[in-house]
């Protein structure tokens, strides 16, 4: 099976975010960047399927030179090939999807796996967008699944329950937490990954459908009434919830 895993580099969740002077991006100084946590499930799933069906796993990212770090992680985990569409430009999700779809067309994967969402922009849109560009079916937020021949049966989380879906290969899925337990790369593999080749691909700076007007820190409009734990304090909170916030 020919498997493409698409991954992205994101700021560590615990990183403090500051908006840079342009009012459009974050100040990257001092920010620790990591492999998007959901993408670990995507990589692991690709590796497991290779073990089961044979074939090869290619990891792809769209980003700048520093994004190669996460490809090294993917190589250390065991992917066969790592590629980067290298650009320093800020692309919108449509343009990122165009680059991924363009790459995919050249290698004709049977399966493309994403993480459920990247934890920087959280839009959860990449898997269906790329699938649409490639005229492939897609299933988002897959928590368990099985492949039999060309057929796929997958379970995904929806509000208040689960959904069982069927589709066929080739297709695109996005991985939910719990799909598998991602392996930790071993030290020798981490060392070997440092010297493995990473293929660089020229970006296509095509269509931008969305423009960013501004980025700002959220303004806090919270009431901020903090009290102790006496009976009177608790009564005052209950009264405030009822009369001021009107939520009960």
């Amino acid at each position: 099976m020919n498997i493409l895993v698409c991954i992205s580099q994101v700021p560590d969740t615990t990183t403090k975010i500051q908006v840079s002077g342009d009012g459009q991006t974050i100040d990257k100084s001092g920010v620790k960047f990591i492999l998007n946590p959901y993408d670990e499930f995507a990589i692991e799933e690709g590796l497991k399927l290779r073990e089961q069906f044979g074939g090869a796993v290619t990891a792809l990212t769209v980003g700048s030179e520093t994004s190669k770090e996460i490809l090294r992680t993917a190589l250390a985990m065991g992917v066969d090939k790592a590629c980067i569409v290298k650009t320093d430009a800020q692309l919108d999700s449509y343009n990122v999807a165009e680059n991924i779809a363009g790459f995919a067309k050249n290698i004709s994967p049977d399966l493309i796996i994403f993480g459920r969402q990247s934890i920087d922009f959280d839009s959860s849109s990449m898997a269906p967008m790329v699938a649409e560009m490639l005229d492939m079916p897609s299933i988002s937020v897959v928590s368990s699944w099985k492949i039999e021949g060309n057929g796929i049966q997958a379970e995904r989380d929806i509000e208040g329950g689960k959904e069982i879906l069927s589709t066929t290969l080739p297709c695109v899925i996005s991985a939910q937490k719990g799909l598998n337990d991602p392996r930790y790369p071993k030290l020798p593999d981490i060392m070997k990954a440092k010297s493995k080749p990473i293929e660089e691909i020229e970006p296509c700076h095509g269509n931008h459908l969305v423009s960013l007007s501004s980025m700002a820190l959220p303004s806090s409009k919270r009431v901020g009434m903090i009290v102790g734990d006496s009976d009177a304090d608790i009564t005052s909170i209950v009264t405030a919830l009822h009369e001021q916030a009107k939520v009960i």
Binding site: Y94, S123, S124, S125, E132, S138, S211
Partner: peptide, 23 residues
Amino acid sequence: GNATGKEIAPRLSVKLKAGLLPD
């Protein structure tokens, strides 16, 4: 932007060449 909308909105964006404003 529920589970259903998150699957169809990105496809609509591509089909209609319309900017996707999610979440």
